[in-house]
């Protein structure tokens, strides 16, 4: 049986790992390669690098960082942020990424999802969606959550999959960094709407939140960041709780 995944996200900027609250107020939390290796050892199922560099100079460090990580990391590595074209995706994969997440560029030009899926396979194309709640719906935002679009998140997720995305990384902007749990309603709505794996993101404050994202939210995987980097809990502690809740979880002992 396919197990549920715990994915550790490292926000990188200028080659360092940083973490903010609601996409702002960044703090330096460590070296990406060392942190990725530590999380593999602790039993993380995947690692994601989200590049939030503001300038081209900062971004240039990303591909070198990906290559150095891929040479030592033996679990899947996803890279997102600053990936705009098929050429960018090719470069990310060549550098050592296994999957690439595409966010603003897919909103600007949805064809890019199809082009990437046809060339590299749907399994390496992750549609990254940042959504903010408005009444009973969720509005898609781009550019790190700053720019509202006309798109509704559930419909947009469906379109991304129809166009070739093999996975959806779904982030609640409202919950991101707040540590009060994932937006379960949003997660459930998208997980029910598409047939590809959905990754819940934004808001995990403890292991119970992760469990709720997978059970009540119906996600295949959960993305966590700050609570691990800050030492509030561990990969092992989260996975123990998930296993005790009856979820199929990969054992690393």
């Amino acid at each position: 049986m396919l197990t549920r995944r715990l994915i550790v996200c490292l926000d990188v900027k200028g080659g360092r790992v940083v973490k903010g609250v609601r996409f702002e107020g960044l703090r330096d939390v460590g070296d990406p390669v060392e942190l990725a290796l530590r999380y593999e050892q602790e039993g993380a199922d995947e690692v994601t690098f989200l590049d939030i560099s503001a300038s081209a100079e900062e971004r240039d460090t990303l591909w070198d960082l990906v290559r150095r990580t891929a040479e030592r990391l033996f679990i899947p590595l996803t890279v997102g942020g600053g990936v705009r074209t098929v050429e960018d995706v090719g470069r990310a994969l060549r550098s050592g990424a296994d999957k690439v997440s595409i966010n603003s560029a897919a909103v600007a030009r949805p064809e890019v999802l199809t082009e990437c899926a046809e060339r590299f396979g749907a399994q390496c194309v992750v549609a990254s969606i940042d959504a903010r709640k408005e009444g009973s719906r969720w509005r898609v935002h781009t550019h790190g959550g700053r720019k509202p679009t006309e798109l509704e998140a559930v419909a947009w997720a469906r379109e991304c999959v129809a166009r070739g995305a093999g996975e959806v990384l779904l982030t609640s902007i409202d919950q991101d960094g707040a540590r009060s749990g994932y937006d379960l309603e949003l997660t459930r709505a998208v997980a029910d709407a598409v047939d590809v794996p959905v990754i819940a993101s934004g808001g995990a404050g403890n292991a119970e939140h992760v469990r709720d994202g997978l059970t009540r939210g119906g996600a295949d995987a959960a993305l966590v960041a700050g609570i691990l980097h800050d030492g509030l809990t561990t990969v092992g502690a989260i996975k123990s709780l998930l296993r005790a809740s009856g979820l199929p979880i990969r054992s690393t002992t």
Binding site: M1, L2, T3, R4, R5, D45, A122, Q123, G166, E167, D195, V196, P197, D220, A221, R250
Partner: peptide
């Protein structure tokens, strides 16, 4: 299967 691609750890 319903969920395709299969992405993740399996036996």
């Amino acid at each position: 299967s319903r969920r395709v691609p299969q992405i993740g750890w399996n036996q």
